Every structure is written in C-alpha cells, then in structure tokens.
Amino acid sequence: MNTSDTHNQRMAKMTFASVYPMYVAKVEKKGRTIQELHQVISWLTGFDDQMLQELIMEKVTFEAFFQQATLNPNAQLITGTICGYRIEEIENTLTRQVRYLDKLVDELAKGKKMDKILRG
C-alpha cells in the first residue's frame, strides 16, 4: 500500500513524547499497566525503561526513535489493519514501524495475552 509522502512526512516528524501519553491512557483505560506497555515497546524496539524515558524527555521524532531502535526480528509477524491501513502492505519503512507499535498497543488494550502480542 502506498501512503502519501505528506502522510509519511507527518509520521516521521511526530514526536514519540506526544503520542506516548495516548498509549498510556489507552492501555490503562482497559485495565493494562504501564509496565506491560513498556514490555511491548521494549520487545519491538529493544529500549529499556531508562532509554524510553530519555527519548520522551528529548522529544525525539518517530524518525529518530526508530533510527535508534533495534527492531525485533519477529516484527514482520505483526499483521492486520490499523487506522485503515493493512500493515504488511505499507511500503514506507518508518510508517510501517510506527503502525507496528500502534498495532501492539491496540492488542494490549484489547486484552490479548502477552505471549500472543510478543509473537512468542
């Protein structure tokens, strides 16, 4: 799937710190914890809690966030639709990575078991 250049640029320039509180609110509203959210983010990116906090404080863009990440080799197993896009069909690498994260947060909020979310 081809996303527009404008869409891809908007994703790249968005800061992780601006979206993180929404992730927290979404999972907590559904009875999940920040620790579980961090576990999911860590699985995808390789970031520990300290690094995650540094990235939030630095207000890094998603572009910088994923440049510093060590993406989990099983990330390509994250499939399905998110925000109207089929993840496995998104051609722009960064946009696909952001949608991976969105999908994992959605699965966490929907009560999926952690071993399923982490493709274990």
Rank of each mutant, 00 (worst) to 15 (best):
T93Q: 11
I34Q: 13
G46W: 00
Q9M: 07
V40D: 07
G120K: 14
L55P: 00
G80S: 08
S18M: 06
A64S: 02
M22E: 09
A69C: 00
A64G: 01
V27K: 02
E89P: 11
Q50N: 08
M14P: 01
G111D: 10
T93A: 14
G80M: 15
V60W: 01
K26M: 02
Y20K: 01
I87K: 05
Q76F: 15
I90G: 10
I56M: 06
M1C: 11
N72S: 14
T79L: 13
E91A: 15
A75T: 01
S42Q: 09
D115R: 11
M14C: 09
L108E: 05
N2M: 04
Q50L: 02
T79F: 02
V19Y: 03
T95M: 02
T81V: 15
S18H: 06
Q39C: 09
A12T: 11
T6Q: 14
F16K: 03
T95R: 02
M57E: 12
L77P: 01
K30I: 11
R99P: 03
Y85N: 13
R99S: 13
T93H: 13
Q9I: 12
N92K: 14
T3A: 10
V40A: 13
K116I: 05
M1S: 11
S18C: 00
I56F: 09
V24W: 07
E54L: 00
M11D: 03
T15H: 05
G84L: 08
W43V: 05
F65I: 01
C83W: 14
T95H: 13
E28Y: 04
L101P: 08
S18W: 02
L71Y: 03
T81I: 15
I34L: 11
T70P: 03
Q35A: 14
R86D: 15
D106L: 09
S18V: 03
M51R: 14
L55I: 02
M114G: 09
R86V: 11
T79E: 12
Q39H: 06
L108D: 05
I41K: 04
Y20R: 00
E91T: 15
R96F: 09
A25T: 07
W43C: 07
E58T: 05
Q68R: 12
S4Q: 01
Q68P: 04
E91R: 13
K110S: 00
A109P: 04
F65L: 12
T6P: 01
Y20A: 12
